[in-house]
Design a protein around this nucleic acid. Structure first.
Lengths: 170, 170
DNA sequence: TCCCCACATTCCTAAAGTGACATGTCGAAA
DNA sequence: TTTCGACATGTCACTTTAGGAATGTGGGGA
């Protein structure tokens, strides 16, 4: 049920349409909680039905601008403080590691080398986001920086691990 | 489609029943790719239908012992070497960070402190697994150690981040 | 003026994951 | 000898995620 709260969280920053939210997702949450457009619109409908958000204004082209309600805000806060995050995150990257004995050693090493490279790429990408949140004083920027730092630190750890792991084989 | 390959991977180590696999999941893949019993039995049925595994023997209490077939092994190898791992992993823990401005600063700090504590716990748990794979010479142990090291390294990075992040607020 | 692109929403199908429920059997200990 | 826990498989209903298709509108540049 996190998509629901992702939407509430973005609407807590200010009113937006489904289309706006899609773009917002792309620039802010896409590395943390990707969502497709169909998922998003469906969720907006459900949130509106539940009274957690309302259509505050309608614009051209059928645009509906949603606003978070008091109930929505309360639910968001409850989720942040009272609901404990899921323990396990699935990683098919790591799952493959368990089964690396099934391929030839040079293939296993190539896999880990590739993961190091992919992670390096990802780090570059995250670094490229930094300028956009560096100086922001809005809430999403301030906490976006902290989230970015998470990505950077874990990315570095992952890259170092992949390099180490490659050398562990044989 | 990773559960399918998780099952193939475990069966590549040797024949097992659904019940065996459940226990194997619990001690090896549960931190990487959790699965419920219903999911597992359903997947076994589908894999058998697809000819990637077969029922090699039937035992007491309706026990069916599955073996991986040549096709299954080929599919597993293909998945390891040719299919690239998913880029983004969802984290509702990190998602909350984006919205921490919606709660009072002391609550935000408490959240991050809690995450540091939870991660420390998780690290302890991972350390407790180490003895079980430390000396193993079987494939799952050898690569299990590498996967474990991943959990340890990323856990430490996450813990340090959470401590750093707590100090960033206010 | 016209046309294209960005804006904007809705519907659909399929696969994957969650959690509870249902059902039955074998074997060892009391 | 009984009985209880571990063994063992399966079904159902529901939610979430993925991805694509269909449809239409408004406004700014050629």
């Amino acid at each position: 049920m996190s998509l629901r709260h992702a939407v509430l969280g973005l609407l807590a920053e200010g009113p937006a349409s489904g289309y706006d939210l899609m773009k917002l997702f792309d620039v802010s949450l896409s590395n943390t909680w990707p969502a497709t457009q169909s998922q998003l619109y469906a969720e907006l409908g459900k949130l509106a039905d539940a009274g957690l958000i309302t259509v505050a204004a309608e614009g051209p082209r059928g645009r509906k601008e949603y606003t978070i309600t008091e109930e929505g805000l309360a639910e968001l806060r409850r989720w942040i403080t009272d609901v404990e995050p899921t323990r396990v995150t699935r990683s098919d990257m790591l799952l493959r590691v368990f089964f690396l004995a099934q391929v030839r050693p040079e293939q296993a090493r190539a896999y880990l080398r590739e993961q190091a490279a992919v992670t390096a790429e990802r780090l570059k990408h995250l670094e490229s986001i930094r300028p956009f949140v560096e100086d922001g004083t809005d809430d999403l920027s301030r906490y976006g920086r902290i989230a970015l730092e998470y990505g950077l630190r874990l990315g570095r750890a992952q890259q170092e691990w992949a390099e180490w792991a490659e050398n562990q084989i044989q």
